[in-house]
Amino acid sequence: MGKWSLVTKGFVKDNPTFVLVLGMCPTLATTTSAINGLEMGLATLFVLVLSNIAISALAPLVPDKVHIPVYIVVIATFVTVLQLLMQAYMPAAYTTLGLFIPLIVVNCIVLGRAEAFANKNTVLDSALDGIGVGLGFTLSLTVIGLVREILGSGSAFGFKFIPGDGILAFVMAPGAFLVLGYLMVLFNKYLKK
């Protein structure tokens, strides 16, 4: 597999949201607007790349029976680093995303990539894999956020172009499920294979 395809496969072929259906909680919860989706995606990307690098470097040294706890500690460490950095330099985003930043620890994408890829590939490949999957995740979250923002508040990336209130249900909980469901239908119909 070429290096470039490691990065691009997350966009469509192995898209973490629409194909692998991983990390659903932040996908649904933080996509009330395109910006929020983008921020959440990038936060996950940060943890994913660092944990992939660390785990691929550590993997040969870790006894098999304790590999899960070790991975969890490594991931939790990077999440905490992210939490501290965001509190210091991006307080607004930290407040908006709230609970879902610490919850990156339990995002199945991160542990999933560690288990499925990083522990049996080189550091460079794992880093590229992290970037690819992370970008795919960011892309899906931004798209979902964009659709919900347009329908729910009549704006895109905070720029309002439809006057009035929009369909509130799309900003609230049900809209998250509906938009993801219908986007998945479109994805299945036009992009898969």
Partner: peptide
């Protein structure tokens, strides 16, 4: 419909349930 099979229809069902819980 084919494209709705599996998760998509499940997600849409949950969406309607969530609306009821609203």
């Amino acid at each position: 419909p084919e494209a709705f099979k599996g998760l998509p229809i499940a997600l849409i069902t949950v969406g309607i349930m969530a609306m009821a819980f609203l």
